[in-house]
């Protein structure tokens, strides 16, 4: 279904978009008032540090040479140095990205696992108590602010019931662990999951509610199509009709929103990360902005941008599986 040409074209698009992102980020340095060095250096930077920054950015060179140096560094995955944390930006991102991915993917899985069956059930039992319960849930889920939901979940399930830790990521030997560590050491899975559960539910609730609504309305629309009657006329079990035909056709808008939301989750889970003292990309970005740690801001923006591009490419790949018209174009 997915042709090599299609993949090559998508990859080409992706490269162009990533190039545009890194270029905009580069130009942002010069869009702020004052010299580039004052933009990049921390507020309390010493003159020696400022001189070092100027040297590293080859500020005495013309702009296009600086730009070429910058791109060259990026190609070598050199994202610069965090003067506030006194470590390389690459290292900082490498420690934070797994945490963010854990949370974003867990929230998405929560959303998919709950929202899609709920949306289908709700649509196939339109105007029954089940449907009203599902639609009420999605209304409440969409309207509940994350910080409030997070605190309530902590109060009830951590402080009250004591089922889950109050906050923070799972640690082993003082080191924060993520899904990758769990792959190598499966005995950590339980601890990892209990730490992940509440943040994932908090982050996933809005997402679940949104997807439930989308799935329901998509399935309701598809159920009225004539082909459903044809499939029923050949005696197919309702579950096959609903999940192999109706849902598949209703999924295109769902997958679109799923991709966009997952992209947002990578950079925008700041509130949930704060409530649960989660060491993710969102809180790193906000801290870096507060500290004027420009190289870190730049690194975060690039990672978030690249994340969006990758997710969109995957979404396009899924389209070709869902809708034959896409791959035939």
């Amino acid at each position: 279904m997915v042709s090599g040409r299609f993949l090559a074209r998508r990859f080409g698009h992706g490269v162009v978009v990533v190039w545009a992102i890194v270029t905009v980020v580069f130009l942002l340095r010069y869009s702020t008032p004052g010299s580039v060095v004052t933009t990049i250096a921390p507020l309390d930077a010493s003159p020696q540090l400022k001189a070092q920054i100027a040297r590293e950015l080859s500020l005495h060179e013309p702009l296009h040479v600086q730009y070429a140096t910058y791109l060259g560094d990026l190609l070598r995955l050199d994202l610069g140095h965090s003067y506030v944390n006194n470590t390389s930006v690459r290292q900082l991102l490498a420690s934070r990205l797994p945490q963010t991915l854990d949370l974003a993917i867990a929230a998405t899985i929560v959303a998919i696992v709950i929202a899609i069956p709920l949306g289908v059930v709700s649509a196939t039992r339109r105007h029954t108590p089940t449907d009203y319960a599902a639609t009420s849930f999605s209304l409440v889920g969409i309207s509940t602010p994350n910080f409030w939901l997070g605190l309530v979940l902590v109060l009830v399930f951590s402080v009250g019931m004591g089922w889950f830790p109050v906050s923070g990521p799972a640690r082993a030997n003082g080191e924060v662990i993520s899904a990758i560590d769990v792959l190598y050491a499966p005995q950590l899975a339980g601890r990892w999951l209990t730490h992940l559960a509440l943040p994932a539910v908090t982050l996933g609730t809005y997402f679940t509610a949104l997807l439930t609504r989308l799935t329901r309305s998509g399935v309701v629309e598809e159920l009225d199509q004539s082909y459903v009657r044809t499939l029923r006329s050949s005696g197919l079990p309702p579950v096959v009709i609903r999940y192999q035909h109706v849902l598949r056709n209703a999924l295109v808008p769902v997958v679109t929103v799923l991709g966009l939301q997952l992209g947002t989750l990578i950079g925008g889970a700041v509130i949930t990360e704060r409530v649960f003292a989660w060491h993710g990309l969102g809180s790193l970005l906000i801290d870096a902005i507060n500290d004027r740690d420009w190289m870190v801001v730049q690194g975060c923006l690039i990672v978030i941008g690249v994340g969006f591009v990758v997710i969109n490419a995957v979404v396009d790949g899924i389209y070709t599986r869902l809708d034959p018209e896409v791959s035939m174009e």
């Binding site: 199509q225 004539s226 082909y227 009657r229 006329s233 056709n249």
Partner: peptide
């Protein structure tokens, strides 16, 4: 067998 064959098949299968 239905009237409109064009809409009586699932377009994505």
């Amino acid at each position: 067998v239905f009237q409109d064959p064009m809409s009586s098949f699932d377009p994505s299968a």
